[in-house]
Amino acid sequence: MDFFRTVADHYNYVITIFVMVAGLYIVTSRGNLIKKLVGLAIFQTSVYLLYIEPGKILGGTAPILHPDFTVYSNPLPHVLILTAIVVGVATLALGLALVVRINEAFGSIEEEEIIEKDRAP
């Protein structure tokens, strides 16, 4: 019973870390630049969850003050992550712009083909 309790208490973190290493795996094992960027976005999103999860209080409510409620979730991680999401899409766009330019220069977005063409005289 204790074991199940521990699992329930930490299930969030386990899934978050799983998603995080899945992102890491995509970035390191795949050569396609767009897929690498999606992997990077997944990695980034798992960090959002890692920040928000500890801020939750069971039985609490969203951090908008109202006389009827006294228990609120922690708003500080929400602020940090809210800005991080918008910055994330701006940097994703920058990465995509680089991919488009690489594709125009080399005619490919596969890492191995690009390295091969770059080495060719």
Binding site: A41, I52, L96
Partner: peptide
């Protein structure tokens, strides 16, 4: 579910909306 409604709104509009559009435009 985690009570982060502002962040959820941002993720739904940015993550599912704008990033998808930009990725499709790049594809």
């Amino acid at each position: 579910v985690l009570d982060a409604v502002d962040v959820a709104m941002t993720e739904a509009s940015v993550g599912a909306g704008i990033s998808t559009v930009l990725l499709l435009a790049a594809l």
